[in-house]
């Protein structure tokens, strides 16, 4: 029990974070794209994420919550080290979240300003998340190389979110907005690919621990599918966004799906790189874990609640399935 429980919680935490990146990723992406959209499409773009964003953000709370609950000492180290980027991300999320409501309820005069706040809030959150990921992977080092590394990730994450958001819009929108979304996706693919490639190459260089794990035989061959499948997914992205006929034939969802696939693979790669640490080179899962009795209590709750949450989340997504419509509180 004592050895397995922390691993289970590490897995649940990883799952929550991955779901957060995918789910809030698409709505932050749509938020960033709001800046580039003409006014007549803005309401529809917001409508496409309106019913979901709140629940999407809750996965972040769960991820951080599990770290807090299952690995309290790691939580302390990580959040103390990331104090500033966390504060910036939170302010970004606050601005983004309130703009949802203020943009339609405030005076019409102010609507453009709330739209801008929406886009900026989304961008700031995405960038600070990237920065945080960078510092986490590099073990919170403070030197120029690490900062450059963090900065690259801080630019890659918004690019990934934009592709994801555009993929979402391709599924949710029709006509002109959909056509624009295809263009947006295509424009963001290149920065996304370059970013991922740069991160993959530099991560082992930044951390010796990670280098040793990836470049030893036969593990290296076992891991080869990760970059190969990612490359194939990027190929699919490029192909689909290049041909209008594919989207027109109803295969636009491939953009979203391929991006999700890349993110899943990236997470797996990251998990492999870091295991068994929670804080790289400093604290492993077992050292960081809380008391077994507390973990058991929580495991019971998670075992019951998580399937239920996934169940009703699917139910709600089905209710709002299909093309987005204008949002009203009435009918």
């Amino acid at each position: 029990m004592d050895t397995v429980l922390p691993l289970i919680f590490m897995a649940v935490m990883g799952l929550a974070m991955l779901l957060y990146v995918i789910l809030d990723g698409y709505d932050l992406g749509v938020g960033i794209l709001l800046h580039f959209a003409p006014d007549e499409h803005k309401d529809m773009m917001v409508a496409s994420i309106g019913p979901f964003w709140d629940a999407n953000e809750t996965w972040l709370v769960l991820g951080v919550g599990i770290m807090l609950v299952a690995f309290p000492s790691a939580h302390g180290i990580v959040l103390s080290a990331l104090y500033l980027p966390v504060a910036i991300m939170l302010m970004g999320l606050i601005v983004r979240g309130v703009s949802f409501d203020f943009r339609t309820k405030a005076n019409d005069k102010h609507k453009p300003r709330w739209n801008r706040a929406f886009a900026i809030g989304s961008l700031v959150s995405a960038m600070s998340q990237g920065w945080m990921l960078g510092s986490y992977v590099s073990g919170f080092r403070d030197d120029w190389w690490t900062w450059a590394f963090n900065a690259v990730i801080a630019l890659t994450v918004p690019a990934a979110y934009v592709v994801l958001g555009a993929g979402w819009l391709i599924m949710k929108a029709e006509g002109d907005l959909q056509a624009r979304a295809v263009v947006w996706a295509r424009q963001a693919i290149l920065p996304f690919v370059i970013g991922i490639a740069a991160i993959s190459i530099t991560t082992p260089l930044i951390s010796e621990t990670i280098f040793k794990k990836w470049f030893k035989l036969p593990g290296f061959f076992a891991l080869l599918p990760i970059p190969l499948i990612s490359a194939a997914a990027f190929g699919a992205l490029w192909h689909v966004t290049g041909k209008k006929s594919i989207v027109a034939a109803g295969y636009g969802w491939i953009v979203f799906a391929a991006t999700v696939l890349v993110l899943i693979l990236a997470t797996l790669g990251l998990a492999y790189s870091i295991y068994p640490y929670v804080v790289i080179d400093r604290l492993n899962v077992w050292e960081a874990a809380s008391a077994t009795s507390s973990l058991v209590i929580l495991l019971v709750g998670t075992g019951i609640a998580l399937p239920a949450i996934i169940g009703y989340t699917v139910f709600v997504y089905r209710i709002f399935w299909g093309k987005a419509r204008e949002l009203t509180y009435g009918a």
Partner: peptide, 8 residues
Amino acid sequence: TFLGVMLF
């Protein structure tokens, strides 16, 4: 999650 259904 249910807020979305309640509102929209």
